[in-house]
Amino acid sequence: NRMYLVCPMNTSAHVDPQKSGHEVWEEFSHSFTPAVREVVEFAKKIPGFRDLSQPDQVSLLKAGTFEVLVVRFASLFDVKDRTVTFLGGKKYSVDTLRAMGAGDLLNSMFDFSEKLINLGLSEEEMSLFTAVVLVSADRSGIENVNSVEALQETLIRALRSLITKNHPNESAIFTKLLLKLPDLRSLNNMHSEQLLAFKVH
């Protein structure tokens, strides 16, 4: 009954069988913590984010960190080669990950990454899109919905303006980007279910 960690936020999918469940969890946590801190640092730089109440900043980050990481690490999923590169640099084929127990979430991540990368966004566009992903007024636990909504609208307007300026002949890109938001929610839900299975295991 070997155990594998098929999330690319790990350094490797292989788990040392000598390690206790707690040690495995600690190692996993150690892997993703720097990435989470980077998301927080990114959020701090979003104009207006620090003006939100502190509980709302925490709620947005709690709810949206996974989705931001999905956008940020879309390039780990190589659609052409059907491989996933883990943060430690190890590359696994889809077949290998499937044999390790990866399920529907893996396919969904590939679909999402392919569609996002195919939009060919610049770094600036991707960054603004990521800010829109994070600042969503309908996350659970938001106290001051109006403030978050106002910031969200400002960010969406800025994204639309930037996309329109950079892609004058591709007006559908902005719509396609907004349609990625429910896709990310869906991935987030699937991921939460996987986490539950992992914790139960």
Binding site: F32, V36, V40, K62, A63, S192, L195, L196
Partner: peptide, 27 residues
Amino acid sequence: FSDPASNLGLEDIIRKALMGNLEERPE
């Protein structure tokens, strides 16, 4: 399992990073 972020320990990491807790940062 309504709060996966808390279960992962994310909330603690997020709070510390938001407060700029330098002691918690990796070297």
